[in-house]
Design a protein around this nucleic acid. Structure first.
Lengths: 353, 353
DNA sequence: CTGAAAGCGCTTACAG
DNA sequence: CTGAAAGCGCTTACAG
């Protein structure tokens, strides 16, 4: 019966011979109500199948709204799917509900999705901004009243100071990756892929430089090769790594897609990843574990980041956090077969493809 | 300034020297309003950063609520992540917003999550029920007014007749898988894994029988081996396939997890998947493409199912569909290396592990 | 311990 | 073309 009228507080009150006010108090477990009355009301709520209308409540009482909006690039991307799963788990436990949107990395879609979401009066927003997002424009759209947590990517305009921020420790991750290669005996280590105008690439390059500097190594400019962070571009740009003479024997890659592309590109240059060239990625996508050879990479634990994000938002909703804060999440190295020690003799099979 | 008051219709009306009614008409693009007035109001809405309060609107006018709730087992499962991405894409295009919850396959969590979601007054619900869900209990919780689409798994109690239903064509999928093995020359084909009390396993077994019957083959009872749908159990149960004498040369598996487990189990039985034994899975999980050998499997295209689900729900919201309907989604076979023709001579390397 | 009244932000007849 | 009033389902002082 989609035609039937919804059951309201007034219905329950009438059936019990009480006022709406009393029924309302029962709903929120007020100790003011007599135990017998409470029991009678509870029974009637159950009998009539009453469902609380949170929207109506939040209209009268700010704070009753318990939805939190989450906007990511793409749910089908496992990184964001696991992040969302973490956010959801922490929110559900706290009795909150998740409003989800996705941008597909489009600034315009992001604008539309956010405009639609805020009409539902979320208590807070977790936003992983699309590339090239305009911070000022976002602030205009979202207004000054909505608590926002920016995840994963800094807003271009440096105006992040208004909002909370949670990101991976890109610098430490690249430092770990580079230190691992150094420990494997490599000295000529490239940083491969990514664009310098991206904040995450900048941070990862800084970590790479940190580790080299700590080992007393000045990176050869030829070891720094940019390329779009896709498999195809990485495979195409691989020869650039070997243009100069003291060619690198290992590479820290901007991310796993670049690393997997590099492994393909290496074959074309007569080298084999995991045998006579060491490769490290970043992200630990699912394929990293089953590539050939399996890829050593930096793992971000997106589900844990989701829990972090939800907790930060909940703390802010409880009014615990004062000024907006920047949070940097830890990152770990997963060592697999793609990053062997330097100078391992090639296997029985020929080295040239 | 999280303290500042929210901008309302009344604010805009006052600033323009108009009534709230007129401003409300502008918001919904009524042709009644004079063009000049409309322009004046629009400018003021923009100037003050007005954001529409959909909850307040839907309180007065049923139908303004445009959220659709989606409940899945686990967002971190790529099947559901892609399904959710599809739902989201179709809903966003139609101007709807997604309320997300997950059950983790727990009936109790499902009950709690649904109770929390319905308080937000969704216009409809897409529910992929947790295992062992009680249909009657769900109907009591959700009431008769909310349009529901049950996805992927039938409710136990046969009371599905109240709600729309969308599921994969399990039977056709298993039929395709079996026919493929027959075309490869196999005659002794097992159905491996799953439990008979699950509706999807039943349907897949029926498809397997269909294909064998069409080829004039009566399955040997020893070819039907049950096991829990996990990798570990499948590996453990593998020897049961070879207990009788005309042992199968191929197996249709309940799902990919079982198929991957079987590939491990085969090695323990002195057989090699993709060489002297053919394996087909079901689901096309990401690992299927990069297992060794890559797994032939039945693909469900979860993103397309998400689009389907959203469209069915939108049609019902527009009042187009009359009675609840059952929808069966197509499924395709992805042929990879794990299902070679019968009697391919083993490669140079020894056959016994 | 319970009730009558006002009000949250919007929309909808109904007048004019 | 525009406005005054009532009402959606709830909560909150304020009385009693």
């Amino acid at each position: 019966m989609p035609g039937s009228r919804r059951v309201t507080l007034a219905d329950i009150a009438a059936a019990c011979g009480l006022s709406k006010a009393t029924v309302s108090l029962v709903l929120r477990d007020s100790p003011l109500v007599h135990a017998d009355t409470r029991a009678r009301v509870r029974a009637e709520l159950d009998r009539q199948g009453y469902v609380y209308h949170r929207g109506a409540a939040s209209l009268r009482r700010a704070g009753a709204a318990n939805a939190v909006a989450l906007v990511v690039n793409d749910l089908a991307n496992p990184f964001f799917a696991e992040f969302a799963a973490g956010v959801d788990a922490a929110l559900a436990e706290a009795g909150h509900v998740l409003l989800l949107g996705s941008t597909g990395e489009s600034v315009e879609r992001q604008q539309a999705v956010l405009a639609s979401l805020v009409e539902h009066d979320p208590a807070a927003l977790i936003l992983s901004p699309a590339e090239h997002s305009d911070g000022a424009r976002l602030r205009r759209l979202l207004g000054p009243r909505l608590p926002v947590l920016v995840f994963n990517r800094a807003l271009g305009d440096g105006g992040d100071a208004h909002w909370d921020y949670l990101a991976l420790d890109n610098r430490a991750g690249a430092r770990l990756a580079t230190a691992h290669l150094l420990a494997q005996g490599h000295r000529a280590i490239a940083f491969f892929g990514g664009h310098r105008d991206s904040s995450s690439c900048d941070e990862r390059r800084a970590g790479y430089r940190d580790a080299l500097a700590a080992a007393g190594i000045a990176p050869d400019p030829g070891w720094l090769v940019e390329c779009a962070p896709t498999r195809l571009e990485a495979a195409r740009q691989t020869p650039a790594l070997f243009a100069r003479d003291p060619a690198p024997t290992a590479a820290v890659c901007y991310n796993d897609a670049v690393a997997l592309g590099l492994m393909v590109g290496l074959a074309g240059c007569g080298r084999r990843a995991g045998a006579d060239f060491a490769v490290v990625g970043f992200d630990d996508i699912a394929e990293a574990a089953c590539s050939a050879p399996p890829l050593t990479t930096v793992a971000a634990d997106p589900r844990a980041r989701g829990l972090d994000a939800a907790r930060l938002v909940l703390a802010r909703l409880r009014g615990e956090a004062a000024a907006p804060a920047r949070h940097i999440a830890p990152v770990t190295l997963r060592v697999r077969a793609s990053s062997p020690p330097l100078n391992v003799p090639p296997q029985a099979t020929g080295a040239d493809a």
